[in-house]
Design a binder for these strands. Structure first.
Lengths: 344, 344
DNA sequence: GAATTGTGAGCGCTCACAATT
DNA sequence: GAATTGTGAGCGCTCACAATT
């Protein structure tokens, strides 16, 4: 049993291989200018001894750890089970494995946790860069990180977006395309249901709705707009007060809210898509299916994750926003398919 | 704007405060033997400058990082949404914040990821210790970590359990108590549905079932035992072949499987608990509710997480298993409540 | 003489440069 | 003289010890 000795050093490996620590270091880091037979010998010794370089020493001199951290300021119970995080983590994983970084998630809990993350984790040492998602729970953390972190990429849109390196999706254009689609299907009274104002993406999606309405020459009727908490229950509540206004289409700013809207329609005997067409926003891979299936604006969360890693790796330190385009995915809830099915 | 300078050192802080780097270090690490006024002055300078110690340098000399890593060998899509991980992460969080460690999750993907974790992460440097859950997907990783890691705690029971520091729950006693409960309610033909043999906990829970049957003097009828994949669908399949044997009770080794069993009963017109009593195993906080509500053996996953951290912090390096007791939580599916409701 | 402070060395690497082939 | 190797210094801390009050 080739007992891996606890603390071999470069120096000792060099001694065994009959070279200096520098040469071993060169082999380890794939530097050129090492004679092939020496390289082979050193590699053999490394394999035999099971030597692994001390990361702390490496980090001390190179000021890099190779770690990328996703800071999750949300409560654990929420983040587990959230299809958005699932997709985002997936994308970040891909990005990290392409760039040979190690991906780690730091679940942050309470103010104490925030302090720890701010100080120990990021500001001095543990990670080369940090990815953090925007949202009401992370505003303070982002503010704190802004001053200290060498590298931070924010996913989404925090209230205070000054001077950030950000990745986002085209919320406004995405919602506009959804509403334009509904209008194109002949819907006349298009409503909007979205989250309360602390969610910036909700604002942007509302703006997209207004864009498309204005574009089509329709009056933007604030009576057809409802803002609620971005959950299924919030969507249901919003729909309960919106349906009496007799909309014939609703653009819902998040899929979970759209699930609530569908539920409200069922409860009220409103047929989807016949009476009301519904188009959501999110289109996450692991979201549960709905009945009828949901037409929705798909945000490329996987791409968002990969892009966040790329930005973190890149050289640019100046503020920058990368905005990724969305796509409209047709389901049954908007009535488009049915129309296609009809003989023309 | 008090621009945080990028790389202040202990030495520089000392210079500003008019003391040596040693004194600053003592203040930072709360060592005794520092004159109060000096301590105050140093603390002021630290606060003003926003100084934070370099973690790499600290780790290099102290051989500790303060990081504890949860290695997740499962596919991300699975682990997100799994109530077990959710509860476990919660417990580990609590344990870490009590012991002033930083908690990080390392999602591992594919063989490349395994190598990275083995070498870079654990063996030399990044984390002080590693927590990893047992399961078919993590056997190889555990084997690899076993030789290298200074500290590893395995949660659950891997096939190869030699020489490990482990935390587990009392699977056998828990299942035995469930079955004893069913027998005590007057059920005569008690069946067992559990996972296929690569899941060690399934074995143990089966053994508990057999214990309780033997204890009550009943024959252990293998015709009443079904092993399937540990999912709702697996549970349903198992029940489909077990129900024709006319059991009047079933102990199901995992709650997700029990959900499938309930579904099968519904499909077959078998009433729960009237015709068949069902007792599950898991009792996770964020598991979705069932109809009827499930009587189940509750494993203290939160405690498991905390205990894992404690073991990691502790001084013992000799192999050791901590086994935490389960509790039986009554729901409607076993018929106990109904009996209590009856006038006696 | 006990409490407080500073000095020297060293943790294990990487990098620039000098020394070797 | 170009390719290859080794030496010295230093990254920013902590610890043992010596020196100071």
């Amino acid at each position: 049993m080739n007992e891996t000795r606890q603390h071999l050093t470069l120096e000792e490996i060099g001694e065994i291989a009959g070279v200096s620590r520098s040469t071993v270091s060169r082999v380890l880091n794939n530097h050129p200018h090492v004679r092939p037979e020496i390289r082979t010998r050193v590699e053999e010794v490394i394999a035999e001894t099971g030597y692994l370089p001390n990361q702390a020493a490496r980090a001390l001199v190179s000021d890099r750890t190779g770690l990328i951290g996703l800071v999750m300021a949300t409560d654990v119970d929420e983040l587990f089970g959230d299809p958005y995080y699932s997709a985002l983590v997936h994308g970040i994983q891909e990005g990290c494995s392409e760039s040979d970084s190690i991906f780690s998630i730091f679940p942050v809990y309470g103010e104490h946790g925030e302090t720890v993350v701010l100080s120990t984790l990021v500001a001095r040492g543990f990670v080369d860069g940090v990815i953090i998602t925007a949202g009401p729970g992370s505003e303070r953390l982002i503010a704190g990180l802004r001053q200290r972190s060498k590298r931070m990429v924010v996913v989404g849109h925090p209230l205070d977006d000054r001077g950030l390196l950000r990745v986002d999706v085209e919320n406004r254009a995405g919602s506009a395309s959804a509403v334009a689609h509904l209008i194109g299907l002949g819907r006349a009274r298009v409503g909007f249901i979205g989250p309360t104002p602390e969610y910036v993406f909700g604002f942007e999606r509302l703006a997209g709705y207004q864009d498309a309405m204005a574009e089509s020459g329709r009056p933007v009727d604030d009576g057809l707009v409802r803002l609620e908490e971005p959950t299924a229950e919030g969507g249901r509540r919003a729909a309960m007060t919106l349906l009496p206004e007799r909309p014939d289409a609703i653009h819902v700013a998040t899929d979970p809210m759209a699930v609530g809207v569908l539920r409200a329609c069922r409860e009220q005997g409103v047929r989807v898509p016949d009476d009301v067409a519904v188009v959501g926003f999110d289109g996450l891979p692991s979201a549960p299916p709905t009945e009828p299936s949901l037409t929705t604006v798909v945000q490329p969360v996987n791409e968002v994750g990969r892009t966040a890693v790329e930005l973190l790796q890149g050289e640019h330190t100046e503020p920058r926003v990368v905005s990724l385009p969305t796509t409209l995915r047709l389901g049954e809830s908007c009535g488009a398919r049915r129309q296609q099915d009809r003989p023309s």
